[in-house]
Nucleic acid binder design. Structure first.
Lengths: 167, 167
DNA sequence: TATTGTTATACTCTATAACTATA
DNA sequence: TATAGTTATAGAGTATAACAATA
């Protein structure tokens, strides 16, 4: 368990972090902004999936996912096939053009990082990546309605699969 | 110098990071969103300063800063005094009410982190904070037009600097 | 003429709610 | 009735450009 002051400092870094993300956004292709990039990245990494699964991995609402998916589908980067097992669902998968676009994104972002983090050691980059992954994991599925806090139910934190029993 | 694959993985973590920030945003007071919180935090940490300096520390455009500052000023959390040395400038400083608000923000965010990172060691929190600070530092002042990318520069991907060449 | 701020406008991302189709 | 997905609407953050006041 860390101390108060440490949390404060971490929060400060988290806030200031938007700048780095915006810098990333600036090098994106004109019609492939961060929302589209996120869709392509997740599909490239995890393979075909349904909308709801994608929304979960992106940690955004299904409605948001729907918009981003529509955007990339319009450009031919993904295809939405009907799910034979559930006619309400659609299976998303990357097209060759989508893979090319994804490659381009990787090219640009790695180029930017190589430029900026040229003096970082292999170990440092790895450690940061690892800690960020863990942070994200510690926050779990943090999409909206994490605290419905209804008067009747015990406000504990039942959805937090996060070892809350630290008391 | 790290490897390609590592950069890709880091990018992935950076993208997925929005979720954590949104979770933070959800616990903010209704009239003190992330923009306001950032203003208060920076003023609390660095003391009185001018708009331009604040914009620099926030890594956002001056126009954005102006809006956020107006918001917090309307609520009495900061005061804008004229700068005797330069009548164009305004010196910003936290009011007691602003300090209280800031304390409240710290209370909420540290509480959230304590809940989520309860099983993190002191060392891990410190290391993550340190690495994030360094990352931010490596990106420098990454506000718009950080790469004026004059013609002589590497033609790689100057991200289509708005094609200003249309004099 | 250059700089400090402010304001108007536009764009992206996200969430909530209403709605359709299917389970 | 509940779930998967779409669409409309609204709110927040940011950038660009035009403008005012001062250096």
């Amino acid at each position: 368990m860390a101390e108060r002051a440490q949390y404060e400092e971490l929060v400060r870094q988290l806030s200031a972090f938007g700048a780095v993300k915006r810098e990333m956004a600036r090098i994106m292709p004109a019609d492939c902004h961060s929302g589209s990039a996120a869709v392509l990245t997740v599909l490239g990494r995890h393979g075909d999936m349904r909308m709801s699964r994608l929304a979960e991995l992106l940690s955004v609402d299904l409605s948001v996912t729907s918009r981003h998916v529509a955007h990339v589908a319009e450009r031919g980067w993904i295809e939405r096939s009907p799910d034979p097992a559930d006619k309400r669902s659609r299976i998303l998968h990357l097209t060759p053009a989508g893979q090319e676009q994804l490659d381009e994104l990787v090219r640009r972002t790695t180029h930017l990082l190589a430029d900026r983090l040229g003096d970082w050691s292999d170990e440092e980059v790895g450690r940061l990546t690892q800690l960020m992954a863990r942070l994200r994991d510690s926050f779990g599925d943090c999409r909206a309605a994490p605290r419905p806090a209804p008067p009747p139910a015990p406000p504990a934190l039942e959805r937090t699969t996060r070892t809350p029993a630290s008391t």
